Amino acid sequence: MPLSKPPLAKRPRFDALRAFLPTLLLGLLGGGLAFWAGLPLPWLLGAMLATTLPSLAGMRLRGPGSARKAVLAVIGVMLGSAFSPGMAGDVAAWTISLGMMLFATAVMWAFSFWFAHRVAGYSIETSLYAGIPGGVSAVTAMAMESGADLRIVGLTHATRILVLLLAIPPLLDVLGHVELGMRPASAASWLWLPSLFDIAWLLGSGVAGIGLGRLLRLPNAFLFGPALVSAALHLTGLTHAVVPPSVMAIAQVIIGVSVGIRFGGTPLAAVAFNLWMAALQAAALMLVAIAAAWSIHVVTGYSMAAALLANMPGGAPELSLVALSLGIDPAFVTSHHLLRIAALMLLMPLMLRAFRRRLA
C-alpha cells in the first residue's frame, strides 16, 4: 500500500508566505530605520518607501497575499476599539460633516474623470475607474469586468495613496498636530499584551466581523466588517479591549509594503507619463480635500486634522490606520471612509452607463 502524500493545498500557502518573507524583512528594516530616525508614521512610511523604490527600479517583490486580509481584520478591530459608550451622540452629530464629505467626493470624482479623460487621454472606462476617489480593492475587482486598462487604474490609485501618505505628515504639522512622532515610551510598552479575556473579545470581533462583512457584502469586508462589530461592542461597553502597540506596528508595516509593491513590474522609464499624470491628479484632489476639511472645521468645529484625514481621497485602510496611529479621532475618520466607499460602489455602475451614453 503506497504511502499517502501530504495534502498539496497547504504547500502553496506556505510557499507564498516564504516568498513574502524578504518583502516583510525589507519593510521591517525600512520601518525600523524610520523609527530610529524619529520620522512621523515610521512603520507605515518607512516600509512603504523601502519597497516602493526597489519596485520602481524593476525589482519584483512578493505581496502578503492572504496575510493582508488578516491584517485588514486586525485594523478593523483596532478602529472599532476607538468607539466608546459616550460617543453615541457624536455619531449622530456627524451628519453635516458626512454630507459635506459626500459633496467633496463628487467634486473629486468629476475632476478626476475630466482630468484622466481629457488631459491624460484615457478611455471612458479607464478614466472612471482610475478617477474614483477611494475603494481601490473593490474598484480593481470591478474594473476587471470592464474595458478599463487595469495597469493604469492600479498605478493611478497606488500613486495617489503614495502621494497622500507622504503629504500627510507635513500637512498635519502645518495644521498644528505636533505629536507626529508618537511612540511607546519604553520597552515595556512594546511588550504589553492584553489579558486573555480581552484577546478573546478582539479575536471574536474579527471573526464575527469578517462573517458579517461577507454577509452584508460590505466594500472591503475584511476591514469594515470587524470595524462594525468591534465598534458595536465598544459602544455598548461590553469590552474596552485594545490592540497592543507591537501589533499595530506590524499592521503598519504590512500595509506599507502592500502600497510599495503595487509599483512592481512597472519600470519608471516605461510608465513615466502615467506616473506624472497620477501624481498631478493626486495633488489636485488633495487641494479639494484640504478645502473640504477647512469647510467642515468652520461649519462644525471638528478638528481640522480629523476632517482632513476623513476627506483624503482613497486608501481607507491606510488613512484609517494613520488616524489610529496618531490618535486623530479614528472613529470619525473611519465612519467617513465607510460611507464614501459604500456610496461610490453603489453609484459606480450607474455612472459608467451614463458616461458611456453621453460620451460614446
Rank of each mutant, 00 (worst) to 15 (best):
G32H: 08
L346G: 08
V163K: 03
W190H: 10
A323I: 03
P7W: 13
M59P: 00
M182W: 11
A120W: 01
N274G: 11
A9G: 08
G30H: 01
M78L: 13
V322P: 01
P184K: 06
Q252I: 02
A138V: 06
A141C: 03
D15Q: 15
S320G: 15
I290R: 09
P194S: 07
N220H: 12
A141E: 13
S320T: 10
T95F: 14
G237W: 05
G65E: 03
S189L: 12
L56Y: 06
P184L: 08
S127N: 08
P85V: 12
A323K: 02
L352R: 11
G154D: 06
G176D: 05
A269S: 15
N220Q: 13
A34G: 07
V91W: 11
M101K: 11
M182T: 14
G209E: 06
A331S: 14
V207Y: 03
W294Y: 13
G27R: 00
L359A: 07
A310R: 09
L44S: 00
V243I: 15
H337K: 09
G63H: 05
D15K: 12
L350H: 11
L26I: 09
I132L: 15
G213F: 07
G237T: 08
T300K: 10
G213W: 05
A50C: 06
A47V: 00
A241M: 09
M248R: 10
L238F: 14
G86M: 06
A120E: 01
G154R: 05
R11K: 14
F113Q: 08
M286D: 05
L338D: 01
P219F: 02
R13D: 15
T105C: 13
G176A: 08
S81C: 09
L150P: 04
L175V: 09
A272P: 02
L218G: 07
L44I: 02
A50N: 02
V253S: 00
P40S: 12
G65S: 08
P170C: 09
L98F: 09
L191G: 11
T52W: 00
I290V: 13
V257D: 02
E179V: 12
G63A: 07
W94E: 07
A272S: 14
I254N: 01
I328K: 06
S81E: 09
K69G: 12
S320Y: 04
L155W: 04
P7T: 15
A158C: 06
A342Q: 04
A284E: 07
T239W: 09
S66Y: 13
V163H: 04
A227P: 02
L128A: 08
S195I: 10
T126C: 05
A73C: 11
A185N: 11
L39G: 07
L218P: 08
V257Q: 01
S137P: 03
A73Y: 01
L61Q: 03
E179P: 00
L166E: 01
L165C: 07
A305R: 01
A92L: 15
A34H: 05
P170H: 10
P317L: 05
W43V: 00
A141G: 03
T23Q: 02
W43Q: 00
H177R: 10
G211I: 08
N311P: 01
G65N: 07
A47G: 03
T140F: 14
F273S: 14
F332D: 09
S97W: 04
V178Y: 12
P2L: 13
T51K: 00
L287I: 12
F83S: 06
P54N: 03
